[in-house]
Design a protein around this nucleic acid. Structure first.
Lengths: 136, 136
DNA sequence: GCTTGACCTCGAGTCGACTCGAACTCCTAC
DNA sequence: GTAGGAGTTCGAGTCGACTCGAGGTCAAGC
């Protein structure tokens, strides 16, 4: 499978795929055809889909590289892989909570504006500072 | 209130507060004492707490600046402010969903490792590619 | 009067993850 | 045989939001 096809299937640009290879993010070296072009298999696509998920939840590239290294080293590294995943899981959950908290504030302010619009008194907003939230 | 005190109360560094002023993120110009030092009031602290929330949900500085500008302009700009907030709300909600989706994958993989550990067969993980998720 | 510490300005540096562009090589189809 | 398209390498550029550091000013306490 060509880099272009993989790019289509994963949503990652060809530039990014080459960059990921340079960065050592792949578990096995990418094969090449006679002309030196990269040849990808289903395994790589599956892994890239995982990578995309890890990235979209902001796992840093060094962590993904580390995970790839551990898989490369094979049996015996499973505990550290699990630890890596759990650490990331915890961070993502924390981040999700943070977003929820921010959403509370944003929704509060949106509701405030809507109420004032309904009451025709939007111009009284921000008299002596921002109205933040009920209990902040 | 000194910049140091505001830094303590908002969790934003003094450097960041000066940077925010340069970037025009404040609604009103920051007052100065005779020695040229910034003097903040409760209004500013409240606004900075809102800013911190907007930032922690990744609202870009230009959007916050725009919001501040609109407040500065006063009555008549409420509709655009509301629009700005709603746009951000939608983005944050989308982002929260994305994180949830990623969490599904991460939790699936964590569970997979745990099962294999329990079964004593962790070494059979990654035979022909990553196990991604039940239905991806 | 002198040290200490908190403040000031200004410009430059950092960081991570791409993203781009130039110059090149292939293979395929006409 | 040549034009086009997809691939290659390499190094440099971008972006946003800080973050830092040098060099200076000021007020209070000893």
């Amino acid at each position: 499978m060509s880099i272009g096809r993989v790019s289509e299937r994963t949503g990652l640009s060809a530039h990014t795929l080459r960059f990921y290879e340079r960065e050592g993010l792949f578990v096995e070296p990418i094969r090449r055809d006679t002309a030196g072009r990269r040849v990808f298999g289903e395994k790589e696509v599956g892994w890239l889909q995982v990578c995309a998920r890890l990235r979209s939840s902001d796992m840093p590239l060094p962590d993904i590289r580390r995970y790839a290294e551990l898989v490369r080293q094979g049996a015996g590294t499973e505990a550290e892989r699990l630890e890596l995943l759990r650490g990331h899981q915890a961070r993502v959950e924390r981040r999700a909570r943070e977003l929820r908290d921010s959403l509370d504030v944003i929704r509060f302010k949106v509701a405030l504006y809507e109420e004032h619009f309904a009451a025709g008194s939007a111009d009284t907003l921000w008299r002596d500072g921002p109205a933040c939230a009920p209990a902040e």
